Amino acid sequence: MRSKGGRTGKGHDVENLLDELYTTPPPGFVSRREELAALTKAAGQVEDARRIRAARRPTLAAWAANLLLRSRPQECQRFLELGGALREAYQTLDASGIKELSEQRRHIVSALSRQAGRLAAEGGHQLSDTAQQGVEATLRAVLADEDAADQWATGRLEAALAPPSDFPSPTDAPTAPPAAPPRAAPRTRTRDELAERRRLRREQLAQARTSADIADRHLHGRHAEQTDAEAVLAQARDRHDRARQQVSTAEQRLRLAREQLHLAAQEQKTAEKRTREAALAAERAERTVREAAQEVKRLSGPVK
């Protein structure tokens, strides 16, 4: 598959390299950028190397938002779709409907920003309160503003996004010049138009609520999966710690056994030396005894 602006066949796909670069923790961004640029240039992709060198290091909040997008693609795609549905719904909802969707929006933004914080911590960087607020501001901007959503969808934010003061509403549209008063329209037509607007409002509200509910359920499901994974990880760490302790104990016993083996080998060598010396001494003693017995026998014979 060919990425936009990337390469196929031999060489490095610059789009994939840029995606990787923007999920690199900020402290290691510059060194990784230079490494990737050098690799790309060595492959003959000079223009791609320039693009990589032109990449700007993201702030910690922007990096966490990029990491969230890359690590949770399905969840973030639903979040982007929810933003589109909410922006449409806000155009026609009344005050009570807007309040309901605002509460759902705050809940989902809070849950996703916490997830981004956990991913950042797993990547070795705990988000400060300021960085966490930057992630939340970015997610609010993504829901409220289509341009912000497009920027985040690239996964290459360099700084946190600032949300607008609120969702766009019908009053945000440019004011048209006053038209001449229309002639009296039939009351039936007015009632039909009002009923149609209300019907469209109900449909948009239902769609927005459905999107919010799906996103909320998906978040709960991911949280449950994460809780299970954390429990499994805790058990694995416990087993690892016990195994490491057992290995340490076994290594201590092995060192002690080797020391005892070395000592026993030295004692064996000493005993073998003594055994050889004792055997030589016994042999000499036997020879002396034989010689003495022969001398006694010679002296015991008749004198000539």
Results as ranks from 00 to 15, higher is better:
A285Y: 03
R258W: 09
L161G: 05
H223I: 07
Q294A: 15
D213V: 13
R258V: 11
G221W: 08
R33N: 01
E286P: 07
A173Q: 12
R199S: 03
R244V: 13
R114W: 08
A279C: 08
L21M: 00
P302E: 06
K304D: 07
R197T: 14
Q246H: 13
A185G: 10
R253L: 14
L112V: 00
V46Y: 10
A282G: 11
E267K: 06
G123I: 02
A215R: 03
R105E: 01
P302T: 06
Q104F: 09
R274A: 15
L101A: 05
D228I: 08
E259Y: 02
Q133W: 05
H223V: 11
V46T: 12
L254Y: 12
E267I: 05
G123Y: 01
L69G: 10
D192S: 15
E203C: 09
E100S: 06
R209N: 00
G117I: 01
E267V: 07
E283A: 13
D147M: 12
D172M: 02
L143H: 01
K4S: 10
A42W: 07
Q133N: 11
D48A: 14
E203I: 10
V14T: 03
L119N: 00
L17C: 02
E203D: 01
H12V: 13
D216Y: 11
R276M: 08
Q260K: 05
L139W: 02
Q207S: 10
E291Y: 08
R202E: 09
Q204R: 15
Q268I: 10
L93N: 09
Q245K: 15
A264V: 07
R237M: 10
A149I: 00
E267S: 06
L17E: 03
R244M: 11
F167K: 04
Q126F: 11
Q260V: 04
A173N: 15
G28T: 09
T171F: 09
A42T: 09
T275Q: 09
R201D: 01
L256G: 15
Q294R: 15
L263N: 14
E259G: 00
L67R: 04
R50N: 07
R290L: 15
T92F: 05
R255P: 04
A116W: 04
E193P: 03
